[in-house]
Each structure stands twice: as C-alpha cells, then as structure tokens.
Write a protein that binds this DNA or RNA. Structure first.
Length: 416
RNA sequence: GUGGGUGUAGCUCAGUUGGUUAGAGCGCCGGAUUGUGGAUCCGGAGGUCGCGGGUUCAAUUCCCGUCACUCACCCCA
C-alpha cells in the first residue's frame, strides 16, 4: 500500500463541516472589513523566501521544501503567505488599484518539521495583508479582524499578546545594548542561544529554556528604546484596542521568528491547544517591500493556522446542516416516478438523494434515517396509481400528501 | 535533527505467566411474514496480531532490528 506523506493529512468528509465554517467565516469577516481575496502560487523561487524571511531563521535553514526545476532554478513550496503576496503586489502593480491594498488569502503552506499536535508538514493558513498604510489605525484594524474572527468561531481560552519592536534603528541600538548585557553571561545560555547572540539575538528573549529566561531577567527592555514616534504609534494601537474592547497583554519578550517584522507585533495563543498553542500571529513589516526590490511601502498583517483553529473549534460553532429530502421510491412505477422527482428537486438546487440499493420501504426508511434525512418522500406503486406522494417529516413523523404533478414545487416550498 | 509512548477487525481497545479454530463494544451487512426509520433480539462479513530476523518442539506473546503513528523538545500558525 502506498501511504500518504508524513505530516500531510487528508481532510475527510466528516471533517468538512468544520473546515467549511472556518473558511466561510474567514471570507465573510474579511469582506466585512474591506479586504479582497488574492490567490497566489503555492511555490516560488527559493530566493524570495530566503530574502524575505531571513537566512538565519529556522524556517529557511531547515524547514523549507526546496527542489530544483529542470533548468536548475531552485524552487520552494511556500512556507508562509506574506512573501508571495508582497511579490505579487510589486510585480502586478496592485498599488495602482485602490481595491487591492487590503488583501487576504486562504490556502496550504509547507514546512518540513516533525509533526506533532497542531503541527503538520502541509497546513493551512488564513492571512491578511494591509498594504500601503503606515497609520496605527491599520494595525488596529488588522488586530481587530484577527480577534473578531476567533470570537465569531467561539474559540475558548484566547490570549492576545502584543509588543513593539521599534523601527530598525531603535532595534539595532537595543540589540547592541542587549548583546553587551549578555557579554560574559554566555555560559548561562543554552547552546542555541549562544549561537543566536551572533545570528539573531532578539530570539534569546523568548527562548523557553529556564536557564535563558533566568539570565535574561534583568536585561533592558526593548520598550525603553522606542523612539518617540514609535512609542506614539504603539500607544495609539493600544488605545484603539481598549476603545474596541479587545483585551490584550503587553509582552516585551514577544519577538517574531521572521526577520521582516518591525514596530507592532502580536500573537494570539489558545489554552486548549497543547504545546503548539500559537493560533494566530502577525505584525508590521514596513521594510519588506524594499528588501524585495519594491518601493518603500508600509504594511501590516497576520496569519492564522486553520488546523489549530479547527482543533479548538467547539461543537457549538457548527451550523445546523441544511434540510434535505430522501426519495423512498419502490416498485416499478414508483421507482420511475422517484427518478424524475429526484431530478426536478435537484434542478432547483434542493439537496435530494436516495439509496438505489434499498428496495423495500423499510430498508429505504432505515437508509434515510442513517443518512440523516430531514424529510422522506414515500413513493410506491400505490402513490403513482393515486397520483400523489407522501412527505414524511423524519423528526415529527408527520406525513402529508401532495399531488404527484406538483410535488416538486410543494417540497421546494416546504424546505425554504 | 533529539527524546518518550504506542502498533491486535473500519474505529476504540481486551488478551495470551509462550500452546489447538485470537476476543469484546461500536460501526457495517442481513433477518425477526403483507408498505413505515431510530429501540430490542438473532445472524453474518471482516484480522499476514506493523514488517523483518532471532531464541524455541511451538512466538501475537520473549529478544534484536526496522518502519509507521503519536506526544514532547527545537521552532512555529
């Protein structure tokens, strides 16, 4: 037997209701907030991700699905969505279209990691990118959409953490101070962090190794290094969140794993998820456009892991399935009449189905019950002879009869 | 990449101190006389006991290896 790939899951029909509601809610709320869908390729030139994510990040160093095209070009399955959206934005001149500055996407991402609860090699993200607006109101809008999305799905145990990384000049000064603070303390850091001092010092801040947490305790906070405009930007965002009643916690150690972030960063975690509890995260990335050869363009966005949303999704978030009709037709004449009734209901886009295997009323009804039919049309030779059908409500067991000739219209009416 | 746990029916799991035809519940299929589902009762199908090797008269059981799944670390959504 050929098996599927490790960490790559099938989404079977029984799970589809959960996916449908999470995706529908993403589309509906994005539209409500004035965002427009964009569909970008699932693979790009490797260089795009290396340049935008940073070559010292774990994602680029060891988690990308990279392969050679026939001409030798290195290609990579997208590990996240922002880089591709920014590339498309620059390449397609979307700046010229006012309706294309607030974008969202839903689709699969690929990372070569060891799978565990809430982590897969192919997973799905819903993300938004608000491009071209440096005003903190844009940050507020994006965070609000993130929070309202989770609220709409009734996800339990959520915490929003927020931080400001400052502009790159602030950050560089902070990093210098932080690194000199760490000088001499190297033995009191984990091996990973000793390496990070040179590659990515900020990540030491949110290292979970107890030794590192202890060592970093007395370190200066990045908040003290924010320039006046950065501080105002951050304060404006926080004020907006309070105004909208969105609860947050400031976490000065919150550092994103990707290089392109600056200023506002945020992360929502969910307590019911287990070890991989980050369910959505994002921030501002004003420098990325230039990194990718575009004009200076401010932008802010987030990405949500849909598998994690679905893990946390309560049953109560699932909508009632649409009512539908099972056609229980039997006998030679009955089957014939059933066939055409089935077809006319379907032509009206009413869900109608039957079981060709069952041939007696008893087995037909049992089949209808197991399939969860709301109504059953009983249509045997007797009904055909009397030019009528019986419509049975499977919950109340009430039965009413309609003339066969107008049955389709009557049923359509009943279901709507 | 590192560590732990688990591999027996479609699913959830028993089990054998090594011994004949390996079990249960759920699910599935069928039946309980005439054209009315869910409950109950009865019956049925379905298993190379993950794979390979070793020890043994005999291995699903003990040993070794391997693969898969899973949880956790790292990191991330």
């Amino acid at each position: 037997m050929i098996r599927g790939i490790k960490g790559v899951k099938d989404i079977t029909p029984d799970q589809i209701p959960k996916w449908t509601i999470t995706e529908r809610t993403a589309h509906a709320l994005s539209h409500a907030f004035g965002f427009h869908e964009i569909r970008i390729p699932v693979f790009e030139k490797t260089e795009l991700y290396v340049r935008s994510l940073g070559d010292a990040t774990d994602l680029v160093e060891k988690e990308m699905y990279t392969f050679s095209d026939r001409d030798g070009t290195s290609l990579t399955l997208r590990p996240e969505g922002t880089a591709g959206v920014v590339r498309a934005f620059i390449e397609r001149g979307l700046k010229a279209q006012p309706s294309s500055r607030k974008l969202y996407y839903i689709g699969p991402m690929f990372r070569h990691e060891r799978p565990q609860a809430g982590r897969f090699r192919q997973f799905h993200q819903f993300g938004v990118e608000s491009v071209g607006n440096a005003h903190p109101d844009a940050d507020i809008e994006v965070i609000t959409l993130l929070w309202r999305y989770f609220s709409a799905l009734h996800l339990p145990g959520l915490v929003l953490e927020i931080n400001s990384l400052g502009e790159s000049s602030d950050r560089q000064e902070y990093i210098r101070t932080f690194v000199s603070f760490l000088k001499g303390k190297e033995p009191r850091l984990c091996g990973n962090c000793q390496r990070r001092i040179h590659t990515n010092p900020l990540r030491i801040l949110d290292c979970k190794v107890p030794l590192c947490r202890e060592t970093v305790k007395g370190a200066p906070s990045i908040t003290e290094f924010l320039s006046q405009p950065c501080q105002q930007h951050f304060d404006h965002v926080l004020r907006g969140l309070r105004l909208l009643g969105i609860p947050y916690t400031i976490n000065p150690c919150l550092v994103r794993g990707l290089d392109y972030y600056a200023l506002t960063t945020f992360e929502v975690s969910c307590s019911v998820l287990g070890a991989q509890n980050a369910i959505g995260a994002g921030g501002r990335y004003d420098g990325l456009f230039q990194t990718l050869g575009g004009p200076p363009t401010p932008a802010v966005g987030f990405a949500i892991g849909l598998e994690r949303v679905i893990l946390a999704l309560p049953e109560s978030a699932l909508p009632q399935p649409d009512p539908w009709v099972f056609i229980a037709s039997f006998g030679e004449k009955g089957r014939e009449a059933g066939l055409s009734l089935l077809d006319s209901l379907r032509a009206e886009h009413v869900k109608a189905d039957t079981d060709y295997h069952a041939s007696t009323l008893k087995t037909l009804l049992r089949s209808a019950d197991r399939l969860g039919a709301t109504y059953v049309v009983i249509l045997g030779d007797d009904e055909v002879a009397g030019n009528r059908i019986t419509l049975r409500n499977m919950v109340t067991k009430e039965q009413v009869t309609y003339p066969l000739s107008t049955a389709s219209a009557a049923i359509v009416n009943q279901l709507r």
